[in-house]
């Protein structure tokens, strides 16, 4: 555990909690892509199957349980509790265009051809593109609430910090995982455009951040 890894995890946790609280307090999931949230729930479920087979640390187990729990709670709020506020017409990204190629890639390129490893690899690849329905929705409506941009910023920052964590681990532990690094790079790049807008436009107009 190094400082980048820890701040990355905390940034990820902050993003998840910001989104849950935003929906809960405003009693609305307007502007939030339910499809992205389902993808994240799938990501956590397929990656954390090792909860059933092995114990790594109390920190590891509790964070995994919190992430999974929050992901399903978010999906529940969007599709059940506040379903009336869900903007399905604007959430029109075709997720099969992500899930099918990512599934194929996980079967082709993985560390070990076993069910657990393929599902782990699938979750890594899927996470890297899971935010696309959300970004697509924002570009379609042309705006995002400030709190939604904070959520996206924390979520993007998390993987960027993980990149620094992997550089650290490579130098100090000789640890190198090309699958995670490649997917993490793709994931971070997808947020770059948003990072730029968040920093440049976020300060001037506190109400809303427009995306092209």
């Amino acid at each position: 555990m190094n400082v980048f890894r820890l701040t990355g995890d905390l940034s990820h946790l902050a993003a998840i909690i910001i989104l849950l609280l935003k929906i809960w307090k405003s009693r609305s999931c307007a502007g939030i892509s339910g499809k992205s949230q389902i993808l994240f729930a799938v990501v956590f479920t397929t990656r954390y199957l090792d909860l059933l087979t092995s114990f790594i640390s109390l920190y590891n187990t509790s964070m995994k349980l919190i992430y999974i729990g929050c992901a399903y709670a978010t999906v529940y709020l969007i599709y059940v509790k506040f379903r009336a506020t869900y903007d399905g017409n604007h959430d029109s990204f075709r997720v099969e265009f992500l899930v099918v190629p990512v599934g194929g890639l996980a079967v082709l390129i993985n560390h070990n051809f076993s069910l657990m490893e393929i599902l782990w690899t699938f979750s890594i690849y899927l996470e890297s593109v899971a935010i696309l329905p959300q970004l697509f929705m924002i570009s379609k409506t042309g705006e995002a609430e400030t709190i939604t941009t904070h959520y996206l910023f924390c979520l993007g920052l998390y993987r960027a910090l993980y990149l620094l964590n992997w550089i650290w681990r490579y130098y100090f532990e000789g640890f190198l995982d090309m699958i995670a690094i490649f997917a993490g790079l793709v994931q971070t790049v997808l947020y770059c455009d948003f990072f730029y807008l968040y920093v440049t436009k976020g300060g001037k107009d506190r109400k809303k951040v427009m995306l092209p």
């Binding site: 090792d50 087979t53 790594i56 640890f175 995670a180």
Partner: peptide, 10 residues
Amino acid sequence: SQVPLRHDEL
């Protein structure tokens, strides 16, 4: 069972 090191990460 033996878990790969990378599974330590979230």
